[in-house]
């Protein structure tokens, strides 16, 4: 702190004036602020998380195991994994392609394109589900055509996948665009002058440079896809064992007053959320080591 003392010019008329004290708050204030913050976070974050695990294990490990391994629960887990997998793969391809097109080329309408990519963030989850019902529902624009051809989108897996893909649409793109913008095209240009083909440039130059950002986006996309409730709830039809994802299965169990089972399945999701946070922290540390600026997670929900 002696450094600061030297830099601060002390007004000689104010004897006994300690400049370092004027640069922070009194210890009492600091203590109160920290305590209040921890109390707030404890009340809103830690206690709800604790209640999930506590309720899940309330009736013992056996009841927990039964709830998680029950047939409908397993099929919900399968559907969630499938939906999440498709969403992550599609949106990863889209994220990489859109970031490449937007950050490596100049073309008219670029800003409009970026705004359109953000659109799904501005839409309430329930409305995200609604738009697909309007298209593919029984009375939707393509409803009759689908019924005539014996195809089912709404109240079936395709609808759930579509709604989830919509909800998680911008995640990876939003992560990669600022990152690749900042890195600039020079390394790719260098690769090209050295004789590399487009795919060689992508695999050998671009991908290693964006890997942490990409992984970060994938993890956030994955978490959201796994836990999406509102949009999926609109298009699913809640058919047990068929069109229930894990969050929907939690809802059904809860509404049947089967609290232990509801919280058991919920605890799996909560555990995955904690894993997400750990993976996020891990990637942030690595990216920081490599001096890569990742846009923070809240940017993921930013509205234009």
């Amino acid at each position: 702190m002696s450094n600061e003392n030297q830099e601060v010019i002390i007004n000689p008329r104010q004897s006994g004036y300690d400049p370092t004290r004027a640069l922070t708050e009194p210890p009492m204030v600091r203590f109160i602020l920290i305590a209040l913050s921890l109390l707030f976070l404890g009340l809103f974050l830690f206690v709800p998380l604790a209640v999930v695990f506590a309720t899940a294990l309330e009736k013992g490990i056996q009841a927990y195991g039964e709830a998680v391994l029950e047939r409908d629960a397993l099929s919900a887990i399968r559907l969630t994994l499938l939906t999440t997998f498709i969403s992550v793969v599609l949106n990863t391809l889209f994220g990489v392609a859109s970031a490449w097109a937007i950050t490596r080329f100049q073309f008219p309408g670029k800003n409009i394109l970026i705004t359109l990519i953000d659109l799904p963030f501005t839409v309430s989850p329930v409305v995200s589900g609604l738009v697909f019902v309007l298209l593919f529902g029984l009375q939707g624009y393509f409803g009759h055509w689908l019924a005539d051809h014996n195809l089912k989108v709404i109240f079936a897996t395709p609808g759930i996948v579509l709604a989830t893909v919509f909800i998680t649409f911008p995640f990876i793109s939003r992560e990669l665009i600022p990152l690749m913008q900042e890195q600039g095209p020079e390394e790719e240009e260098a690769g090209m002058v050295l004789g590399a083909s487009g795919w060689q440039i992508f695999w050998k130059v671009t991908l290693p440079n964006i890997k942490w950002g990409l992984l970060y986006g994938i993890i956030l996309c994955n978490a959201r896809a796994m836990g999406e409730f509102g949009a999926v709830s609109v298009v699913s039809g809640h058919i047990r064992g068929l069109t229930n994802t894990m969050p929907l299965h939690v809802e059904i169990l809860y509404n049947e007053y089967n609290f232990t089972a509801a919280f058991a399945v919920a605890s799996l999701l909560a555990f995955l959320a904690l894993l997400t946070l750990v993976a996020k922290a891990f990637i942030e540390t690595h990216a920081q080591d490599e001096k890569i600026a990742l846009p923070p997670a809240h940017e993921q929900s930013r509205t234009p």
């Binding site: 974050l45 709800p48 998380l49 209640v51 999930v52 956030l220 978490a223 959201r224 796994m226 836990g227 999406e228 409730f229 509102g230 894990m246 969050p247 929907l248 939690v250 809802e251 809860y254 509801a262 919280f263 919920a266 999701l269 909560a270 959320a273 904690l274 997400t276 946070l277 996020k280 997670a297 809240h298 993921q300 929900s301």
Partner: peptide, 14 residues
């Protein structure tokens, strides 16, 4: 960041 990662239904019942 927990509220970003935790599925909303889980937060709701908790």
């Amino acid at each position: 960041d927990l509220p970003f990662a935790l599925p909303t239904a889980v937060a709701g019942i908790a």
